[in-house]
Design a protein around this nucleic acid. Sequence first.
DNA 1: CCTAAGTTGAACACTGGTGTTAGGGATAGC
DNA 2: GCTATCCCTAACACCAGTGTTCAACTTAGG
Lengths: 194, 194
Amino acid sequence: MESKPSAKRRADAERSITAIVEAALECLRAEPNVGMAAIARAAQVSRVTLYAHFPTREAVVEAATRHAMTRARATLDTTALDALPADEALAALTRTSWRILDHHLGLFAAVSATLPPETVRDHHERAMEPLRRLLHRGREEGTIRTDQPVEWLVSAYYHLIHAAAAEVRAGRLPAEAAPDALVGTLLPALRPAP
Amino acid sequence: MESKPSAKRRADAERSITAIVEAALECLRAEPNVGMAAIARAAQVSRVTLYAHFPTREAVVEAATRHAMTRARATLDTTALDALPADEALAALTRTSWRILDHHLGLFAAVSATLPPETVRDHHERAMEPLRRLLHRGREEGTIRTDQPVEWLVSAYYHLIHAAAAEVRAGRLPAEAAPDALVGTLLPALRPAP
DNA sequence: CCTAAGTTGAACACTGGTGTTAGGGATAGC
DNA sequence: GCTATCCCTAACACCAGTGTTCAACTTAGG
């Protein structure tokens, strides 16, 4: 429905849909519990139109998530991941993905509140895939510790970024200092013990 | 109201209140979004009685939180914190507080969903106080890094424990392995760089 | 210019939660 | 054993959100 840009839909319908998805993304980002009414208002669209394109709130959240993830994947692909040694690549990945995760923190809350947990897990898996690959490579290169399961390191990474986002939100950490704090804390946690 | 065990209340009222608080704790732990009806049912008490003692759902959550925190503080006080050097004390603190945080993870979600953010922050501050003290001591002893603000390290610690709890819940990490994974990841992140 | 597709406002029903009220019955505690 | 306190069932009002329906209006696109 909203996944195919090629359907026999009229141009204004197409316009409405993208407006809705983008407005939803913005709203959910700011307040994970927004209702359909608010989303429709933000999209300059009637509530009925909203329901005409998305049968349920869940579908809206899903669409917004897909949109966010493809955009994120696109910006991630601009940074050359495989050219660097794993630990340096990790630092680079952190600095770019930090912005993304921080910006979408609210959406995450919405997703895990409304989407079925199995779907949530799927999205999470997909989002963490580049990091997982990097960690595996680092283990072979000897720059990433092997005494802890990779999945645990992935989770630690993920939650540490959330920690940074929370600190910035609370005003306890200046936003510019966040990337350095992250990298400085993350890398020692991932390196092999000396 | 619920804070003073000494008030001219009858014995059965007292009994109801503690039953409610404990049931609420249990319910919120399992499902952060439980309603008053479910809590009352779990406490073997009518919904009206529940409202007779707690004017609002928020009050119930507050009471459950206080109860959990005093209990947690009690069990924390059994482990001699100040006798050990800071890094060893940190490992010990982690192993004990891990169980507590894991067990109350659901309650945390409920708290941050229903209590005013200022109150949430207060409770958080109080809960993290022992850790904060320990980190400051470790900085003086030279076993904790000084190139990152303590508040950031506190937050990292907190979120890493959440990470462990999430992994255990998802079945990706056996519960027995969690403390070692935590300590093994936490300490290198907190130590000064070599 | 005609028509099918799209949009809209104003209703509607339904759900699930919160908090309240009233009257009758139980019981703790003196 | 009297009484104030407490509890219960059963209803109530209320709110906020989700979806739905309908009849009228607008517009894209051939």
